[in-house]
Structures are given as structure tokens and as C-alpha cells.
Amino acid sequence: MATQHTKEVEQQISKGNARKYFFEKLSSKIFLACALLSVISLLLIVGFVFYKGANPFVTGDYSFLSFIFGSEWVPSEDKFGIFPMIVASIYATMGALVIGVPVGLFTAIFLAEIAPKRVAKIVSPAIQLLAGIPSVLYGVFGLAIIVPFLQDNLGLARGQSLIAVILVLAIMMLPTIVTIAETAIRAVPKSYREGSLALGVSEIGTIFKVVVPAAKSGIMAAIVLGLGRALGETMAVILVAGNSLIIPTSLTDSIRPLTTNIALEMGYAAGTHLEMLFATGIVLFSFILILNFVLARLTAKGGH
């Protein structure tokens, strides 16, 4: 009697356990599926963009080289060359880098090391907040202030120009660079500073010779992220770029970066023209992948 009873209980328990284990297994499968979704998304994105963009070169008789190095972009006459846009994208991004990085980095150093605590406590979160402002608004500001300023005060015929794009992008990447670099600098152990100061190095000397080098990987990450943001920015840039199809030779030329080309013509494109916009996307994508690769290397190094 008693043994039978225990047997029943045991059976029930093992039944319950079986169910429990089943749910355990099932749930871990569901979790895995969710995690795989980002892989699937990435594959889909890469797949679709590349499939669409590669089509004219694979099935049509367009040459990829003349696409990259061609300087004429006249879709209605079947001429697709994006060299001016590649140059424009590189110039604009580099220009923004030259202005944005030093200012952003110095601001980060200031906030982390020199600023009175009360100041940093207000300014840091405020700048962090600015990183979240829709980038379009930077473009609105650029069109309302920077473009007329260039036209009226510097006498440019076109305010929509490379320099306007550079300024807007530099301003836009500031919050990103400041926020990330500041975090990196703050993460440097106090002992580094104390050691250096104890050796008689001045405060400024300590900052630039000890603290900044120690935070190097974080700072580089900040720069690369800022770069990515500048390279990928679209709507703010359309408003101030002018979108001319020339290879820029001076800061005052109107330019059309890669991103702008896509957004500008996407609505109007069909057939090969549409596919060529996807091909433009591939080129942009490749630049970003290179940047990401660099970033991955930098952060991996930082880990050691």
C-alpha cells in the first residue's frame, strides 16, 4: 500500500518534471530563435541590398569599375558613375573629423578632468541629451543659419556647399564624441593620475601624457563612431549639400554625398536606376563595414 503510494507520487513528480524539462528546453529554443533574429536580419539586409545592387553588373552590361570611377551620373541617359559622390562623402567626413574631433576630444577631457564638478554635472548630461536630438534638426539649423551666413557674409554664390556640410556634420558628431570619450577618460584608474602627479608631472602634463594615452582605445572608438555617424547621415546633409554632381575641388563647391544620392532619387527611380541606387548603398555599406572592422579591432585591443 505504502510503496504503491510513493510510486504514484514519484510518477507524478517525474511527469511534472518531464513537463518542466520540456518547457525548459522549449524556452531555450525560443530564446535562441530570438537571438538568431539579429543574424537573420543582418543577412537579409546584406542579401537584399547586395542582390539588388549587384544586379546591373551581373545581368546587365554595366561595369563595376566605371560605376565606381565614372564621373557622370545621368540616370535618364543610362550613365551611372558615382566617383563625385565617393569623393564628396570622403571629403565631407574627413572635414567634419578635422573640426569635430579636436573640439569634441578637448571638451571631453575638460569635462572629465578639469571642469569643476558642478559644471560637469550639468554640462555632461546636457551634451548627452543633445546626442539624441534628431539629426534633421541640425540640418534645419544649417539651412537657416550656416547657409545664409556663407552667402551673405562670405559672399559665396551657393551657401549649400562642402563647407556647410562639414560644419553641420562636425556639430552633429560633437555630442557622440564628447559623451563616449568622456566615459573612456573617466574610466582611467585614479592611481595612474596619482602616480604621475607624485612624480612631479604637472596636471596638464599628466592629462596628455598619461590619462589620454591610457584611454586611447575608448577615444578611438568615439572617433570611429562619430565618423560612422557623419558618413551615414542623410537628411541633415540633403538640406545643406546642394546635391551638385561635380567632383568637389574647393570647400565652396556644392556636393552630393553617397547617402544624399540615395535619398534624393529613391522616390523617382525605377529599373536600372533603382538598382544603381542600391549599388550606391553597397559602396556606402562597404565604407561602414571597413569602419566597423577598424572599430572591432580597436575595442578588441582595448580589452587586453
Binding site: 536580419s41 543582418l42 543577412l43 539586409i45 560612422g228 542623410t234 556606402l284 555599406f285 566597423n292 572591432a296
Partner: peptide
Amino acid sequence: YATESLTGIPSIIYGLF
């Protein structure tokens, strides 16, 4: 790697996709 790559993709590419 996929998750990190997704973070870096510019929104215009997402738009194309």
C-alpha cells in the same frame, strides 16, 4: 558580431532594405 554590425549600419541603408 551581427548585433554589433547592425548598430553601425546607417539608417539610409535600413531605408533601402
